[in-house]
C-alpha cells in the first residue's frame, strides 16, 4: 500500500535516471494521454474544422508545392507529388519533435513546479500529440497518393521499423531539447532558424537522385535526409540505402546517450529553470 520514495541529490543524478523516469512515466499512460488529448482539443477549440485543420494545412502545402515545383523535376507529376507528400509528413514529424521538444518542459512549468510527477509524462504527452498530428497527415497523404495511383509494394513493410525508430528517437529528442532549451533560452530561436533552412536543404521538395555535385553532397551530409529516406523509400517501392540506415542508427544511439547524460546532469535543476 505505502510507497517509499527517496528524495536526494544522489538519487536524482544517477546515470540511469532517464530510464527510471521514462519507466515511471510509462506506468502513468492514462495521465499523458488525457493531457495530450486535452491540449489537442484546446488548440482547435472554437474553429469550425477543428482538428481537421492539421490535415487541411498539410493538404494545401503538399498540393501547392507539388504542382508548382513539379516543373523543376524530371519526374512525373504523380511521382513528384507522392514524393513531396511522404517526405513532408516525415519531415514535419521529425523536426516537429525538435521544435516541440524545446517547449516540452517550459510549457508544463506549472505542473513541474507543483506536482512530483515523472518528467517523462510531459515528454510522452508531447510525443503522443505529435504522433496524432503525424497520423492525421499520413492519412491525408495516403488519400492524396492513392488518388494519384500509388499502390504499395512489399517494400512498404520496411517503413515500419523506420517509424518505430522515429518514435523511439522522438522521446530522447524531446527529453534532451526540453532540458537544454529550459536552461538556455536561445536554443529555441536557433532551432527555429535552422528548421526553416532544413526544409530546403533536405530532399523534400526536390529529388535527391536528380541532383549531383554540391546539392547531392549536402543531402548526404544532412542526417535528416537519411531519416526521411528510410521511411519514404520503402513506401515508394525502393529499398533504402544501407548508408541511410547506418547513419540513422548511429545518430539515434548518440541522441540517446546525450539525452541520458543530460538528464543525469540537468534534471534536478529543471524546476528552477522553467
Amino acid at each position: 500500500m505505502s510507497v517509499t520514495t527517496v528524495n536526494s541529490s544522489a538519487a536524482a543524478t544517477r546515470p540511469t535516471l532517464i530510464f527510471e523516469d521514462l519507466a515511471a512515466g510509462m506506468r502513468m499512460s492514462q495521465v499523458w494521454r488525457a493531457f495530450a488529448w486535452d491540449e489537442m482539443q484546446n488548440r482547435y477549440r472554437r474553429s469550425v474544422l477543428g482538428l481537421l485543420w492539421i490535415a487541411a494545412a498539410y493538404f494545401i502545402f503538399v498540393v501547392g508545392v507539388g504542382f508548382f515545383f513539379t516543373g523543376f523535376s524530371s519526374a512525373t507529376t504523380s511521382f513528384f507529388i507522392t514524393y513531396v507528400a511522404l517526405g513532408y509528413a516525415t519531415f514535419q514529424f521529425l523536426m516537429g519533435n525538435v521544435t516541440d521538444g524545446c517547449q516540452v518542459f517550459t510549457s508544463s512549468a506549472s505542473w513541474i513546479k507543483s506536482a512530483a510527477l515523472p518528467y517523462s509524462i510531459y515528454v510522452y504527452k508531447s510525443v503522443f500529440r505529435s504522433l496524432l498530428t503525424f497520423g492525421l497527415q499520413f492519412a491525408m497523404a495516403l488519400a492524396i497518393i492513392l488518388y494519384l495511383g500509388w499502390r504499395p509494394t512489399w517494400h512498404a513493410v520496411l517503413a515500419i521499423p523506420a517509424l518505430g525508430l522515429f518514435i523511439l528517437d522522438a522521446v530522447a529528442i524531446q527529453y534532451l531539447f526540453g532540458l537544454v532549451a529550459a536552461r538556455f533560452r536561445d536554443v529555441i530561436h536557433l532551432v527555429g532558424a535552422i528548421t526553416r533552412l532544413l526544409i530546403f536543404v533536405t530532399p523534400i521538395i526536390w529529388v535527391r537522385e536528380e541532383q549531383g555535385g554540391m546539392r547531392g553532397l549536402i543531402a548526404d551530409v544532412n542526417p535528416l535526409t537519411h531519416f526521411v529516406e528510410i521511411f519514404r523509400h520503402p513506401l515508394m517501392g525502393a529499398e533504402p540505402r544501407q548508408l541511410s540506415w547506418a547513419v540513422a542508427l548511429a545518430l539515434s544511439a548518440v541522441i540517446w546517450l546525450v539525452a541520458a547524460a543530460a538528464a543525469a546532469r540537468m534534471k534536478r535543476r529543471l524546476p528552477f529553470w522553467v
Binding site: T4, V6, N7, S8, S9, A11, S114, P271
Partner: peptide
C-alpha cells in the same frame, strides 16, 4: 518537487 543539494528525504 525540488531535490535537495545535500542530504535526503525518505518518505
Amino acid at each position: 518537487i525540488l531535490t535537495p543539494d545535500e542530504g535526503e528525504v525518505r518518505t
